[in-house]
């Protein structure tokens, strides 16, 4: 079983599944408002970065490609945060 955790891809998959459960749970308890949005965006960031760096293997890619994809994640998260911030006013 411990051999399973030696492969970073396996660890990554486990984190992705647990993080998905966390988002689902936030929905179940009816989490809403600033704190909930921030928590969900944080989960999106963790999951997205994992897919970009580990699954797409951009950790070992030229910096430009890492920045482009991680930047996309920040851009999308930022725009969502901005829109939700406006709607909470």
């Amino acid at each position: 079983m411990s051999a399973f955790f030696l492969n970073p891809a396996n660890r990554g998959w486990l984190v992705l599944v647990v993080a998905t459960g966390a988002t689902w749970w936030l929905g179940e308890v009816g989490a809403a408002g600033t704190g909930a949005i921030l928590a969900m965006l944080a989960i999106v960031f963790i999951k997205g970065r994992l897919v970009i760096l580990e699954f797409m293997e951009l950790r070992g890619a030229p910096l430009m490609w890492r920045l482009l994809l991680e930047g996309w994640l920040i851009l999308v998260g930022g725009l969502i945060l901005l829109a939700y911030g406006i709607s909470l006013k």
Binding site: T20, T23, W24, L26, G27, A36, I37, M40, L41, I43, V44, K47, G48, V51, I52, F55, M56, V76, I80, Y84
Partner: peptide, 17 residues
């Protein structure tokens, strides 16, 4: 992986937030 990445944003955005 991109298809996966897009859904990772889409699910919380449309279903939960």
């Amino acid at each position: 992986h991109m298809v996966d990445l897009l859904w990772i944003v889409l699910f919380p955005l449309v279903y939960v937030m």
